[in-house]
Each structure stands twice: as structure tokens, then as C-alpha cells.
Write a protein that binds this DNA or RNA. Structure first.
Length: 416
RNA sequence: GGAGGGGUUGGGGAGCGGUCAAACCCAUCAGACUGUAAAUCUGACGCCUCAGGCUUCACAGGUUCGAAUCCUGUCCCCUCCA
């Protein structure tokens, strides 16, 4: 993997972004000659992307930083079909309104991380609905359909997996890979896009696009995939108890986002620093070499860097300060989740159990009772022992009450 | 269209008239140990007015003192044949 000339590919190699690539040498030559355009497709099945897409986003960022043009392809058209890759079951079909709304939400991340505009290396956002929605069936079949054999399509993992498990795969979904291939060809024609990147599960789709473009429009395109990012214990990254780690603030508060990175396992620190931050490699190597409790410093740096990138410097600072105050000084940081209760109600006294549920530290009263019985519930850092006890305004400390469920989950209650 | 098999608490999956809020595994949560890590150990894991009560085993009825378990109908899924 040595001897690469282009800055972009050097960075990607050094930071372990590359899993597979088609003709890396030729791509390297092309990229070191001058700027190219490259794209990554994103599904718009939700209003926000989550950390699962972060590797791809970082790649686009590096691409732009090293002087090339990123194209963010929003799957407005393909979201109406649903990628069967990695899915056992068909996705629900989405309406135009939902898709448009989702695209707007997703856009906010790219606004922050890429420079979008009209300049030579300014990123562009494109919706594949632009060309897919207007396709005419017969002409499409004649232009594109002739280049695909069913024999070959059946060998692709996304298809094979479903068939092997004897699960239904609709004709609609079966067409997904053809449309994605078509996307690549169209982007090549319209924007001079020469490279598609994506997760390793996209390899088949990407290769299809390259072949289609070669046969149907004589373009020479390239593909590159990232490895599947798993945590050290082999789990898919980005899932926690409370759900996905969303990139958008309105889906997941910055404090929780920061905590996610702070709680990275030791073994993953180096990998995450490489993939999700722009910290120079010599610094990364130093940080990942830290041992014992010292590696916690590296985790804080990781959390700060990623949070600053995705949510802004200010959000990162606030989250770190709150964490410091809460965990190291046993206090209550300002950025903790806060719930307000009517002053009068607090005056009269609220049952502890109810208060915990109110604060979102338990899904049901039963859960909170259990928490208390097991000694995991704290009020102003004192263990709650009685499920029947009542909390009144006398518990206010500095105008607020701090509730804790276990060591990591905290919330503030304020009267209003 | 015909013949079978099946739908159980987040996932997987037992149970097949009472001893069933329902084994076990995973996930999750808490406690201990730690470093807001991992591993390990312990406990919990439907809801509530919690030593008691209530609602659950696709849905609607029925049989029975008593049903997740038996019967009938409906919906959904799978396999095989056409």
C-alpha cells in the first residue's frame, strides 16, 4: 500500500479507510494529476444520519480538503425502493413529502462539514430523483437493461442472502442495484464524476456502476469501499441502549453524543481517532499508545474532536465541562438533561419514583423501583433507599435537584 | 387452487389443560471490581395503588371449576404440490 502519490489516497490509507478499490494504481495516477469528482450515496430514510454514515462523511471531507470535489448523492429516487443490502425484510415505501423532509434534515450535517457551492472544489448535493423519477420504462430497459444478466444479478450478496434464507425479494427491490449503477453512470455524464465510494456492503453496486458506464457510455470509473466498522467486541458500531447515535442535535443532544465517544472501549480508541477525527497521525499514535487510566485522556480528546466537528466547538466545550463537573467533581453540569416541574407540585412533594420517571431516568415506575432496590438511584448524590419517600423543595440545591440512575445517567430537575 | 407447518414477553426460542408473568440464550439495566474501558462475578428484566393486585402468549369467539396450551372462525407467515 506504499508508493501512492495522491494526497487523498495517502491519507485514506494511513487512516485505514480503504477496504477494497478497483484499480488503485490508475486511480492514484488520475488523482495526482488533478482534481476529480467523487460521490457517495446516502439513503434518506430518516431526518438525520447516524454514526454509521460518519466514515463516509469523513471521506468526503478529506476529499475536499485534498483538493477534489465531493458529490453528495441523496437517494431521493432510490429511497422509494429501498436497498435490500443487509436487510432481511423489505423496507416500507416512503412518500415524496417524507423524503423531502428527510433530505432537508440530513443536509444540515453537510452544511457544517463540507463547503457547498459553485466553486471548482465546492461540494454539490444532488438528488437522484432528478433523473430517476423521469425515467421511461422501455427506453430504460433498452439502454440499461441489456447490460445486466439475471444470472449475474443473482450472484450478488444482497440478492443471494435473501434467496438463501428463502425470504421474499420483490422485483422492486431487485431493481435497486440497477438504479444505483445507473446513478453512477449519470453522475459521470452530468458532473464528470469518476469515483464512487461507500461501505463494503456497496461493493457489488459500485462495481455494477463501473461496468455499466464502461459498456453503455465508455466511461472509465473507479470504486472504493470502506471496511465495516465494528467495535472491538465485534458489534456493529453506533447502537446503544437508547438507540442510534444520531448526528443531528434535534435527534440526540450534544451531551449524549459526547458521552458516546467518551465511553469508547480502550481497544477502539485508535481506530476511532483515525476514522472520525482529523487529528494528525503522529498525535493519534501517541494517544492510542496510552495505557491504563491514561487512555481516558485520549477518549476525551476523541469525544471533543468528534463533537466539535459534528456539533460545533461550543457544544463540545459545554459537554466536556458538564462531564468534568459531573464525573470528576461529583457536581451537576449545566448541560445535563433537564426537566422542569411546576413549583407548586414540588412544594407539595413529589414521590421519588414519579420524579425519576418524569426525568426520563426510567421507562416505568416498576423500573425505577427496581433501580432503587438495587441501589442504583441517587438524589443529589445520596442513595435513595425508600420507594415511598417524597421529594419536596427542601431538596433543592442551587435551584435544582440532581437525579442519577447508575453511574452514568444523570438528570436535573428544576421548578418553574 | 390443493396439502402440510407456524404466529409466545426487545431478539432467538421452550412450554402444549392447573405447579405460567411463562424455562433457557442473547441484548438491556443495576451492583461489585475498575479508569465514565474491557473481562469477570452478583442481581434484575410485563404493568400497578408492589409481602397484594391487574393485564399478557396474532385477533375474535367457545369448551372447562381452570387455557399460552383444547375447539371454531378471521388475519398474517412459511414449506411442498399445481
Amino acid at each position: 500500500m506504499t508508493g501512492l502519490k495522491s494526497e487523498f489516497l495517502q491519507i485514506l490509507t494511513e487512516r485505514d479507510f480503504i477496504h477494497q478499490a478497483t484499480d488503485l494504481a490508475a486511480l492514484d495516477a488520475k488523482m495526482s494529476e488533478g482534481p476529480i469528482s467523487a460521490y457517495i450515496g446516502f439513503d434518506c430514510t430518516a431526518r438525520s444520519l447516524h454514526v454509521g454514515s460518519l466514515v463516509q462523511i469523513m471521506m468526503l471531507r478529506w476529499l475536499q480538503k485534498s483538493g477534489h470535489q465531493p458529490i453528495v448523492l441523496m437517494g431521493g429516487g432510490t429511497s422509494k425502493i429501498g436497498d435490500p443490502s443487509g436487510r432481511d425484510e423489505s423496507r416500507q415505501l416512503m412518500t415524496n413529502e417524507i423524503i423531502a423532509d428527510n433530505m432537508a434534515g440530513i443536509r444540515t450535517v453537510f452544511d457544517r462539514l463540507l463547503t457547498l457551492g459553485d466553486g471548482k472544489t465546492d461540494a454539490v448535493m444532488v438528488n437522484n430523483g432528478e433523473w430517476l423519477d423521469a425515467l421511461e420504462y422501455i427506453p430504460f430497459l433498452r439502454e440499461v437493461g441489456t447490460h445486466f444478466t439475471i444470472n449475474r444479478m443473482l450472484t450478488f450478496d444482497s440478492v443471494k442472502l435473501r434467496l438463501d434464507r428463502e425470504q421474499p425479494l420483490t422485483f422492486l427491490e431487485f431493481n435497486y442495484m440497477i438504479l444505483q449503477a445507473y446513478d453512477f453512470m449519470e453522475l459521470g455524464k452530468r458532473y464528470g464524476c469518476a469515483l464512487q465510494m461507500g461501505g463494503s456492503d456497496q461493493w457489488g453496486n459500485i462495481v455494477n456502476g463501473i461496468e455499466l458506464a464502461r459498456r453503455a457510455s465508455s466511461q472509465h470509473l473507479f470504486g472504493l469501499t470502506t471496511p465495516l466498522i465494528t467495535t472491538a467486541d465485534g458489534k456493529k458500531m453506533g447502537k446503544t441502549a437508547s438507540g442510534a447515535i444520531w448526528l443531528n442535535e434535534d435527534h440526540l443532544p450534544a451531551y449524549d453524543f459526547w458521552q458516546f465517544w467518551r465511553n469508547t472501549q480502550d481497544a477502539d480508541v485508535g481506530k476511532f481517532l483515525r476514522l472520525f477525527t482529523e487529528i494528525p497521525m503522529n498525535e493519534v499514535r501517541r494517544l492510542e499508545a496510552l495505557e491504563g487510566a491514561e487512555i481516558n485522556d485520549a477518549k476525551i480528546i476523541l469525544a471533543n474532536a468528534v463533537t466539535a466537528l459534528i456539533r460545533g466547538e461550543e457544544a463540545a466545550r459545554l459537554a466536556e465541562a458538564t462531564a468534568k463537573e459531573t464525573f470528576e467533581q461529583g457536581g451537576a453540569g449545566a448541560d445535563l438533561p433537564t426537566v422542569t416541574v411546576p413549583g407548586a407540585a414540588l412544594e407539595a412533594g413529589i414521590n421519588v419514583v414519579d420524579l425519576f420517571v418524569e426525568a426520563g431516568l426510567g421507562a416505568s415506575k416498576g423500573e425505577v423501583r427496581r433501580l432503587i432496590k438495587q441501589g442504583g438511584a441517587k438524589l443529589n448524590d445520596e442513595k435513595v433507599t425508600d420507594t415511598e419517600s417524597t421529594v419536596t423543595s427542601s431538596a433543592l440545591a442551587g435551584g435544582q435537584i440532581k437525579l442519577s440512575a447508575g453511574k452514568k445517567r444523570h438528570a436535573l430537575v428544576r421548578p418553574e
